[in-house]
Structure formats: structure tokens, C-alpha cells
Design a binder for these strands. Structure first.
Lengths: 238, 238
DNA sequence: GCAAAAGTGTTTGGTCTACACCCATGA
DNA sequence: TCATGGGTGTAGACCAAACACTTTTGC
């Protein structure tokens, strides 16, 4: 805990009362994970039973990375995830406490890691497809728009990344069967894929390679694969 | 002038002295135009002869749009351009005056409009390919990196947009010959294109259409074309 | 008549999609 | 022996790239 509480919440709450001439920069995080066969988002619930994205005021003197890690850990308990900046949102009336500016990130976390790290007293996990039924936070209309818009935007970006990068590595074990990888793709892209075409595409792009090992936990053993690159890599389609 | 000086510079300069616990949000603009057959960027020069992007502190109480328009007009004289948010950059030591956070935009402006609106006492126009020779602003190393990085990122985004959208409409007259459009593409993408393949792609995507008029200003008259959509549109490749 | 730019089709290779049957193993 | 999921190939449609000659006009 200690290492990541450099940035105190208290030091910052008085910011709201200063009537500044600049907007207050905040950082909001859309956390995705594949849980029980569905794409899910990790959300907080506020005093009005509205769902909100984990987020907080950005502290000067620390990098965006540090701010991100700190906010994520403080709000959810999770550490060390894949993250990517999405977009910076702005609305004069975005927050009734003052003018804010939200730098939105999305994060991907492998479900096992998520479950062992997350603090369920703080967060809820909500199926992406059920978001429509929830009250997502928006101060103006009190109807889902603002944070919901950010989540939807994050989902689009995630889909794009799946098609052209090895970002799926952050949602699986080190080694896996192709059918498990395909399942992740089908859940996120929200469509069925053809097994053979899927495998051909992976091989052509060179995203995964055989490990030489077999997974014997089902009837017929399956080859285990791993990602070729440890780091995020964009594979050109050409 | 009046309409766009809602936001005063003076009201904001004292921000630097308040030792805030939050970073100061600024907005920086990469302005592209095609000038004399080359892709160019509009820059300011600071007291140390370093080039900087037009930018300023973001004012609370105004939308990002309003802030953008105001900064662009105050710093360069230009109004009403195509704009798109790029990325939000952050570095603790980005600016020696304090911790800042830069929301970067890029803008496209048709050269004729640019020349009639721009205030050349404030800005310089620099060829994109010559940027390497210039000192681009960066407070830490005093060598081109920070703003240069933003410009390079903007250029990548612009190239992508040209391939998949009708964004080129913001760099040409209402009607034009296909060869003129192709020239813009070649300049921005920095490569030669095949005339027939280029035209086939435009027609297949349905980006442009014939106006029925001819341009007779060169030896052999050429058909004049126009963009099908007034608004920015992403054309799916399928 | 010549210089300058416009106009115009075809071929080829590659990539994407759709599609169905047999195999290895554990129970 | 049967149920489960693993493994494998081909044909057709579509798209992208390469490529060169003729036409219209002004001078």
C-alpha cells in the first residue's frame, strides 16, 4: 500500500474550493476484463447508486504513469495492468463541483490477476452488455451519457487493438490453446469467428507461436501457444 | 477580434505563481497546410529562437472548442479550421515554469484561407521536412524533442486520416481536378501515387463526385470534382 | 506540330471468406 | 463406443498494384 500512497487524497480535495481560472484535470479509467465468458467493466458506485469510472484528480509532480497507478490501486486495489490513453474529455458542466477535464485511459487485466488483486468492497464488476440497464454517472442529465460514452469509446479502441496488435496477451495466461485465444476474441469483438481463418490470420501476422508443449486437461490434448512478442506490437496488415 | 478575446491572457498568468497541487492544463496546436507544394507547419518563435507550437493555458468556464478557437486566433490570426484532438502529453519537467499537461490538437487549413487570415508578424511557416534542422522547443534538453514529438505524431494521424476519410476537403477549394487532389495526397503521404489506382479508390469509396463543370485553365480541360460529403466522414474499407 | 496534362483497362497476385470432415483422448 | 474438442485444406470473390498509350487543347 505504502508505495502507492505518495499522492494523498486529502491534499487535493481543497482544490474544489479555490475557484481557479483553470479546469481541474482528472484521470478516469475504464478497466476491462473477460470474466465468466463475458466482457466486463470495473466500476464504482456513488452515493446516488450511479456507476462511475474509477478516477481522481491528477497530482502535479508525478508522472501520468504514477498518477494512473496510484489512482488504480487506491480505487480498486489492482496494479500492473496494460493501459492506454484514450481521449481527453471536457464539458463545462461535467462535474457539479467545478470545471473538470477528464483524461480517460483504458486498462486490460487478465481475470485471474484481477480477482486476486481487486478489492470488491470498493468496486463492482458489470457485464459490458448490461451497461445499458445501469445508471451511469452524468451530472447534467442524470442519465447515462458521460461516463457511458467514455466506456463505449474505450470498447471501440479495444476492438481495433485486438485486430491489429497482440494486446490480447494481457487477457490470458502465458501459454494457452488457440481455442482459448479465439474465445477472448469472440467475446470482445462480439461475434463468432471461423476457427481455421482465425488461426491462419494469427500465423500470417506472426502474433503467436507454438511452445512445443501440450495441454492435456481435456479429452484430446491441444498444442499450447504463446505470444511471440512480450511487448505490445502493432502488426502491419500490408 | 472582440468576439474571441473572451479569455484574457492576463487573468491566467498568475496561475504559475500559485504553487498548485494540480498540473496546469494547456492546449497546443499543430497547424498543417500545403504551401508551395510542400507540407508545412505553422510555428511561433520564442525569445531563444526556438520554435514552439501555438498554445496557451486552458481557461475554465469555456469549452475546449472555445479555448481552441481563442488560442488559435490570438496566436496566429487564423479562424475556422478543421481540428482534431491528438493526445494529451505530460511531463513533470515539460515546462520550467511549472508542471503542465498539454492537450495537443492538430488543425488543417487550406493555404488560401491561411494566407489571408494569418498574422505573419506572429508566426512562421516551416516546411515539415525542414523541421529537423530547427530548434524545436523543449525545456529540459533544449534540443528538439517535446514539441517535435507532438508534430510527428500529428503527421502520422494526418496520413491515416487521408487514407480513410475525406479530410482532404479542408486543404482544397470546393471544386478541383483529381490531379490537384492527388498532389495533396502525394505531398502529405510523401510518396508517388498511381493516377488510375488513385482515382479508382476515390470512386470506390465514394469520396468525390463530378460537378459536371470543366476547368479550362490548362491546355487540355479537366473535369472538376467535389467532395460528396460536407462533413468529415470515415469511409469503411470493408 | 509539339508540349502539357487528361483520360482510360487489363492482368496478376494476394488476401478474405465460406465451408466439413476426420482424429485423439478420457470417461 | 461415444462425447468432446482438436486439427486440417480448398475454391471463389474481391481488392490492390503494376503498367502505357491515346486524346485534347494552347501555343
Amino acid at each position: 500500500m505504502a508505495k502507492n500512497t505518495l499522492i494523498s487524497e486529502n491534499k487535493q480535495t481543497d482544490i474544489w474550493n479555490q475557484n481557479l481560472s483553470i479546469p481541474i484535470p482528472t484521470l478516469d479509467i475504464v478497466i476491462f476484463t473477460v470474466y465468466r465468458g463475458e466482457l466486463c467493466v470495473v466500476l464504482l458506485k456513488n452515493e446516488n447508486n450511479e456507476y462511475t469510472l474509477p478516477g481522481w484528480i491528477i497530482a502535479a509532480g508525478y508522472s501520468l504513469e504514477q498518477n494512473f497507478d496510484n489512482i488504480l490501486e487506491r480505487k480498486t486495489g489492482i496494479t500492473g495492468v496494460y493501459k492506454e490513453q484514450l481521449y481527453t474529455f471536457w464539458e463545462v458542466n461535467r462535474d457539479k463541483r467545478g470545471h473538470t477535464l477528464s483524461i480517460a485511459y483504458y486498462a486490460l487485466v487478465w481475470v485471474d490477476k484481477f480477482l486476486s488483486a481487486v478489492d470488491f468492497t470498493k468496486v463492482e464488476i458489470v457485464k459490458y452488455d448490461n451497461l445499458g440497464e445501469k445508471q451511469i454517472w452524468n451530472k447534467v442529465t442524470k442519465v447515462g451519457f458521460d461516463h457511458a460514452e467514455i466506456i463505449s469509446y474505450a470498447n471501440q479502441r479495444l476492438k481495433w487493438k485486438l485486430e491489429y496488435t497482440n494486446v490480447a496477451k494481457d487477457m490470458l495466461w502465458k501459454s494457452f490453446r488457440l481455442s482459448q485465444l479465439q474465445e477472448v476474441y469472440e467475446i470482445v469483438l462480439w461475434k463468432k469467428l471461423d476457427k481455421r481463418n482465425f488461426q491462419k490470420k494469427l500465423m500470417k501476422l506472426g502474433i503467436v507461436q507454438e511452445t512445443g508443449k501440450l495441454d492435456k486437461t481435456t479429452n484430446r490434448p491441444a498444442k499450447l501457444y504463446e505470444f511471440v512478442d512480450e511487448e505490445l506490437k502493432v502488426y502491419e496488415v500490408l
